[in-house]
Design a protein around this nucleic acid. Structure first.
Length: 472
RNA sequence: CGGGAUGUGGCGCAAUUGGUAGCGCAUCUGCUUUGGGAGCAGAGGGUUGCUGGUUCGAGUCCAGUCAUCCCGACCA
């Protein structure tokens, strides 16, 4: 890798490839997730899977192929997804009687099964989660943010009534929010989508919107209250306590490998990736520095000793003992890859019974850190970095929430700074269109406050206070 | 899917009016090096994305195709 990284403003593809997270595949819009990137996904999975199970959901697996007719059963759903479906028409050397859709999401096939499994109020709430790949033939792709095939988790639940279902949709939203704050150190704005931004077929869509370092906004997770539209389409009826047939109320919720995009773009700086400790595949990188073979042996054995001590505290540690590369090269490379803490040990340090520590988040060099109590010091520092990154992301978000009362103001703010703008909005679709055409911005989520002025787009009476911004 | 750009050793790039492909980094060998991307000397590596066409001759011109990037319309 031959790159000078001083003051380089990385874009996402630069970073994803140079930090060795992913590579392009020969198929348009698809990516290979390399081991360093996949390790991040595995960590995401292990944290979230625990939370999802704690919330009472069990994992299952549904097929990749969905009969085309299933997609067509729910009107809005088919309208939303048909254009981006990959369809298998031939298999086994023959034309299929009914084409099979490669799942863009699994509502239809899961609810088809729900209708067979749910018969009584005693069966409810019913829930399933699956970790799977899905395919959406997007016009424009971008590594991690929008790839043709991506990995995700999708949860589906059925409930006796709206109240119960809404509570679940919100509970899962809060689990995502907590995960993003505590593990990914990202501070999303959480709220309800406008009608036009809803999931195809949903009654209500809630989402988590992350402000990235480039000022753009990323929808990083969603949770939907689906109402009874799918239940009608797939005949998910149950017998209630009054011995009547009733429609189940459904929810679905998911997060994808896009979270890795949020992670990259939410924390990066001019030197590359910055990974919060909890999600970093390597939390501590140890770099031995030596001039001759005698020192080398001594120093490496000290590195191994430190690695072992750190691993006893379950701190993910690696030693970069590659003697083909100079120390300086390694410093830059591991910074590019976002490892939270680097320990440097040379002969000097061993003689003085100290090490040098460099923290990635603040680019701060801590010299002469005592070897005694080092592991505890590192552990505390990892927590400190985790907290620092969250606080930094939170202030970044807070500092970039603006208000505006006209399209001109909105445009100026977005051109100069990006970020979120809180505006009053009439709630009319035509105003959303206007906002998009003139400012290239969309309504991200509704704010909790009540509107306190006329609509910033049209001057009509405002119905909502909303956050808007330019999104990926 | 529309507009624009690009595609040349692993990576980044060059090659004038068409004349048979060159540089830097990386790689290999040797010696010296190693606390912020090492130095010197030598060596290897290419059907120029792919397919076809024009031409005595194509990296260069033409057509098609595939991929990537930027801008729109579509989206987690």
């Amino acid at each position: 890798m031959n790159i000078k990284i001083e003051d380089k403003d990385f874009d996402l593809s630069d970073l994803a490839i140079k930090a060795d997270l992913a590579d392009y595949s020969p198929v348009r819009g698809c990516m290979v997730i390399k081991h360093y990137g996949y390790a991040i996904w595995e960590l995401i999975q292990s944290f979230l899977d625990k939370e999802i199970k704690r919330a009472g959901h069990k994992n299952a697996y549904f097929p990749l192929f969905i009969p085309e007719s299933f997609l067509k059963k729910e009107a809005e759903h088919v309208e939303g997804f048909s254009p981006e479906c990959a369809v298998v028409t031939h298999a086994g050397g023959e034309k299929l009687e009914e084409p099979l859709v490669v799942r863009p999401t699994s509502e239809t096939i899961i609810y088809y099964m729900f209708s067979k499994w749910i018969k009584s109020w005693r069966d409810l709430p019913y829930s399933i989660n699956q970790w799977a790949n899905v395919v959406r033939w997007e016009k424009r792709t971008r590594l991690f943010l929008r790839t043709t095939e991506f990995l995700w988790q999708e949860g589906h639940t059925a409930h006796v009534d709206e109240e119960d279902a809404q509570a679940m949709a919100k509970k899962m939203l809060e689990i995502y929010n907590k995960f993003m704050k505590e593990v990914l150190a990202l501070a999303p704005i959480v709220g309800e989508k406008s009608a036009s931004e809803r999931f195809a077929g949903a009654a209500d869509t809630y989402s988590l919107e992350v402000l990235l370092r480039d000022g753009k906004i990323l929808q990083a997770g969603t949770s939907h209250y689906l109402g009874t539209a799918f239940s009608k389409a797939f005949e998910i009826y149950y017998q209630n306590k009054n011995n009547e047939l009733a429609l189940a109320h459904l929810t679905s919720w998911g997060v994808s490998t896009r979270l890795i995009g949020a992670l990259i773009m939410g924390h990066k700086d001019e030197r590359g990736l910055i990974l919060p400790p909890k999600i970093a595949p390597i939390q501590v990188i140890i770099i031995p520095i030596y001039k001759n073979p005698e020192d080398q042996e001594l120093i490496i054995s000290e590195c191994k000793q430190i690695k072992q001590e750190l691993e006893e505290l379950e701190i993910r540690t690696e030693i970069d003992a590659d003697d083909q590369k100079t120390a300086g090269y390694k410093f830059n490379e591991w910074e590019l890859k976002g490892v939270p803490i680097r320990i440097q040990i040379g002969k000097r340090d061993i003689e003085n019974n100290v090490v040098e520590i460099v923290r990635r988040d603040k680019k701060e060099k801590l010299r002469d850190i005592s070897r005694q109590g080092l592991t505890e010091r590192i552990q505390a520092l990892l927590n400190e970095i985790q907290e620092f990154l969250f606080q930094r992301n939170l202030s970044w978000r807070e500092e970039n929430i603006y208000t505006a009362d006209s399209l001109e103001e909105i445009n100026k703010i977005l051109n100069d700074k990006g970020g979120f703008i809180k505006i009053n909005w009439s709630g009319d679709y035509e105003d959303e269109i206007k906002l998009k055409e003139i400012c290239k911005a969309t309504v991200r989520v509704k704010a909790l406050e009540e509107p306190n002025n006329k609509c910033a787009i049209s001057g009509k009476d405002a119905k909502y206070k909303v956050y808007i911004g330019r999104a990926y």
